[in-house]
């Protein structure tokens, strides 16, 4: 039972997430780049995707505020930072540049493994390398006495 509780909610969440990305055309980099092309041939589809997702999640957050524990877990494990820092902005800008170049962000890239594996594999490999590089170069060193 414990294994099923750990596996099933995230698995079903991933299934719904991948289905939603595909239905909305977000696994197509041209459609994503079309949204970012506001000075050219703008395609507003992504705004509808974000809008639909944010409305549902806004309801979910109000439900969450009345719950003590999640339905299938022992406790909520949520980000609690409130400070703005340079890393948040610089990191997001770097991500945005990569997003604009290829029209891919992490979710659609992983979902597209089922649709266009040869095309997204180099992106995913480089993305994991970039994550590792960030960890190696920027993560605080633990100083042992």
């Amino acid at each position: 039972m414990s294994f099923a509780r750990r596996l099933l909610p995230p698995l079903v969440s991933g299934l719904l997430f991948g289905a939603g990305l595909t239905v909305s055309g977000m696994t197509d980099p041209q459609r994503v780049r079309g949204f970012l092309d506001v000075f050219g041939d703008w395609d507003p589809t992504l705004a509808f995707v974000m809008g639909g997702a944010v409305i549902v999640m806004a309801v979910a957050w109000t439900i969450q505020s009345r719950m003590r524990t999640p339905m299938f877990g022992a406790k909520f494990s949520l980000p609690d930072r409130k400070d703005l820092d340079g890393r948040l902005i610089a990191g997001s800008v770097l991500f945005g540049i990569g997003w604009g170049i290829a029209g891919l962000c992490p979710g659609p890239a992983i979902a597209a493994l089922a649709l266009s594996p040869i095309s997204v594999l180099p992106f995913i490999g480089a993305m994991l390398a970039g994550m590792l590089l960030q960890k190696i170069t920027m993560e605080r060193k633990v100083i042992r006495p």
Binding site: L16, G20, V23, M26, T45, G52, A60, S77
Partner: peptide, 22 residues
């Protein structure tokens, strides 16, 4: 299609939040 997909993504994120607490 965008709105339908967006709602599915929202439900996915809601399940992760309310079901798994993440």
């Amino acid at each position: 299609a965008g709105l339908v997909g967006g709602v599915l993504i929202g439900l996915a994120a809601a399940l992760m939040l309310l079901g798994a607490g993440r």
